[in-house]
Structures are given as structure tokens and as C-alpha cells.
């Protein structure tokens, strides 16, 4: 074997090993992060988590008010964000498909998809919190909806464009107006894609902390008033993890575990649904 061939093979081997190591590097950190969350979280999980309120420093308690606040804000964000996202996605995939407006919207939407969520939180602060004079659950929901919308726009645009044009033509040939074609034919055909998109968005917003810091803020007590500061899981985790108290750390880990499991299960579910559709 000559020297050149040997060197080329060696370079190839080294590159392959490095690629395998890079993958191992990524998987190692995923495993480490998940293991940390599970080990610390499992030790802190107890039934009181779901029955008691967030405690003052040095006392035991649960996260009931935070779970409730997060759930309500996420549901409201879905209620606000889904129709807007679906409507914009419909425009992009249907009547506006090849217009200049559609390309501009797609471009901007992709940027909003990756935009720093803390800036979006500040925007809602300026838009809602300052005029109303106080932090509120409504402001938090709006901030989350702002993050949800681009996800739904993109996925519903893609899902609708996957619907074969023959279905549109068949519907138009029956004399259906466009709104009926969309509502009764296209949305049905693209339903699982749109639902996937919303679930993907929910997985994204349920872990978002930064946009809630200046909108929903936090609330140590039970409150169902959406027009007042509202407890929520991510901000409670942030506050408790940064504190010097052991009980608060334990609660933060418990919240982190439940949040992680929720988000990961949702993400995996979305992939299963998506794969089922493709095969």
C-alpha cells in the first residue's frame, strides 16, 4: 500500500471517528440533562405538589397555583394564536400562494420563529402592561400567543400546500366558493398537519420563561384572576432555582421534571403523528 493511499484512508478514518464522537457528544449532553432533571425531580415529587400553593421561603408547599396559571395561559394562547396562524397560513397556501405579500410574510414569519422571545415579552409589556398599569395573565397569554402564531402559520402553510390540487379543482368544479373549499375540504384534508403544528407550538410555549417575566410576572398565592399577576411554572422554576433555599430548589426541580416530561412527550407525540401521516 503506498503512502498516499494510506494517508487518505487515515484521514477518512479520523473524519468518521470525529463524526461519531460529535454525535456521542450531543447524545451525552441530552442524557446528562435529562438524567439530572429526572433524578432531582423524582426525589422532589410528592402529592402535595398538586394540592398546595407555592410556599414562602423555608416552608413546604406545592405548585398548584403555578400549574393552574400555566394551563390557563397556554389554553388562552392557543385560543388566540391558532385562528390567526391558521388564517395567515391559509392565505399563504391558497389565494396568496404566489403573491409578493406571501413571500414577504413567509420571510418575516421565519424570522419571528427564531426571534428572541425576551424581546417579544418586552413588546407585550409596552403594548399591554404599561397602558393597563399592571402585570396580568392576559398579557402573559398574549406574549405566548405571539410565539405560537409563527409556528402555526408555518405548519398550516406547509400542511395546506401538501393537499393535492385535484381536491381544490374538484371542489371549485362543484361551484363551491373559496371559503367553503377551505373550511370543508382543505382543512379536513390538512387537519392532522395543522394539529401537529399547534401541538408543536404548545410544546414550544409551555417552556418559555423569558416572555412571561414582564407580562404575567408571578403570584405566590392562588389566583384565578386573569387580569392580575398570575403564577406560572417557568417563572416559579426560575425564581426558586435562583434562590438560596433548599425547599425552593426541590420544588424547582419537581416543576422542571414535570415541564420536561410534558414537553418531551408532546414533541415525541407530534413526531409519531407526523410519521404516521407520511407512511
Amino acid at each position: 500500500m503506498n503512502w498516499t493511499l494510506f494517508r487518505r484512508r487515515l484521514a477518512d478514518r479520523i473524519a468518521l471517528v470525529c463524526a461519531a464522537l460529535a454525535t456521542a457528544f450531543g447524545l451525552f449532553f441530552l442524557a446528562w440533562i435529562l438524567w439530572t432533571t429526572f433524578a432531582n425531580g423524582a426525589a422532589a415529587i410528592s402529592p402535595r405538589l398538586f394540592t398546595e400553593m407555592t410556599p414562602p421561603p423555608g416552608a413546604d408547599g406545592g405548585l398548584l397555583n403555578a400549574f393552574y396559571g400555566s394551563a390557563v395561559m397556554i389554553v388562552l394562547a392557543i385560543a388566540i394564536g391558532t385562528p390567526i396562524g391558521l388564517a395567515a397560513g391559509t392565505y399563504l397556501a391558497e389565494q396568496g400562494r404566489h403573491t409578493r405579500l406571501a413571500s414577504a410574510v413567509r420571510f418575516v414569519n421565519d424570522i419571528l420563529l427564531s426571534a428572541p422571545s425576551i424581546v417579544l415579552g418586552l413588546f407585550i409589556y409596552e403594548l399591554v402592561v404599561v397602558p393597563s398599569g399592571h402585570f396580568s395573565g392576559y398579557a402573559g397569554s398574549l406574549a405566548l400567543a405571539l410565539i405560537l402564531v409563527p409556528v402555526v402559520v408555518r405548519t398550516s402553510d406547509e400542511a395546506l400546500r401538501l393537499v393535492p390540487d385535484r381536491m381544490r379543482e374538484a371542489a371549485f368544479a362543484l361551484g363551491l366558493p373559496r371559503w367553503k373549499v377551505s373550511l370543508q375540504v382543505l382543512y379536513k384534508a390538512a387537519r392532522s398537519g395543522v394539529i401537529t403544528g399547534v401541538l408543536l407550538g404548545v410544546a414550544r410555549i409551555s417552556g418559555e420563561t423569558a416572555p412571561l417575566l414582564f407580562t404575567a410576572l408571578n403570584n405566590q398565592f392562588w389566583s384565578a384572576d386573569m387580569n392580575a399577576p398570575l403564577a406560572n411554572v417557568p417563572v416559579v422554576i426560575f425564581q426558586y432555582a435562583m434562590s438560596p433555599y433548599d425547599q425552593w430548589h426541590a420544588l424547582a426541580w419537581a416543576g422542571a421534571l414535570i415541564l420536561t416530561v410534558f414537553v418531551l412527550v408532546l414533541s415525541l407525540l407530534v413526531r409519531l403523528v407526523a410519521r404516521g401521516r407520511h407512511s
Binding site: 447524545l27 441530552l30 446528562w32 439530572t36 417552556g207 420563561t209 422554576i237 426560575f238 415541564l259
Partner: peptide, 22 residues
Amino acid sequence: IAVAIELLAAVPSIIYGMWGLF
């Protein structure tokens, strides 16, 4: 493996923060 790597993106950033800090 691809799904596992993508899960790294699904983990909320606050979890990275706690893991990073502790």
C-alpha cells in the same frame, strides 16, 4: 438518533439553565 438530537432543541431553555447552574 436524529430524533434524540432534535429533542435537545425541545428541552426548555430554563432546564438548560438549571442543569448549567447546579
